[in-house]
């Protein structure tokens, strides 16, 4: 089962749409509430990352009976230092983004904490790719 979402950079009012949609799907599949929560948090953070940092992005969701895989790809500034970006509280978000209540620097670490596997590749001034895997067991 696959789903695709397109996310527009800067569109804060729509942030959360894709994660809400995915949440409904996971509920219909009868995934345990605790797991749904983790997956939706990871998805939401990924969504907000695109909105806050990138120009545009795509999320491809693939659901198998054993696991869910989120492939997130954006066109944007990329991440210079992935290791630092993974640290709690590290953020390159602009003042405007922070004023909107985003950009607290918890995004990537939150994704990592809520997934079983996280892969990040990024090219500065081109974009970032994330693959998130969460097993259902």
């Amino acid at each position: 089962m696959e789903f695709d979402y397109q996310i527009t950079g800067g569109d804060f009012s729509s942030a959360g749409f894709a994660s809400s949609h995915l949440k409904k799907i996971l509920k219909q599949l009868g995934i345990q509430p605790r797991l749904i929560k983790k997956i939706v948090i990871a998805m939401y953070e990924a969504e907000v990352n695109i909105v806050a940092h990138a120009w545009q992005g795509w999320i491809h969701v693939r659901i198998e009976p054993q696991a869910i895989r989120l492939e997130i790809q954006d066109q944007g500034p990329g991440i210079e230092d992935i290791e630092r970006a993974m640290e709690d509280g590290y953020s390159t978000a602009s003042e405007e983004v922070r004023e909107m209540g985003f950009g607290a620097g918890m995004g990537l670490s939150n994704i990592k904490n809520n997934s079983d596997d996280l892969e990040i590749t990024s090219t500065v001034n081109e974009g970032t790719e994330l693959t998130i895997i969460k097993k259902f067991q």
Binding site: K24, Q28, G30
Partner: peptide, 23 residues
């Protein structure tokens, strides 16, 4: 206790199949 009305099926594989059909 939760008692979700959203579930398409108790069995995950069957639920996935049903979801494909719904889509």
């Amino acid at each position: 206790a939760p008692r979700s009305i959203m579930k398409l099926d108790e069995d995950m594989t069957r639920a996935l199949n049903k979801m494909r059909r719904v889509k």
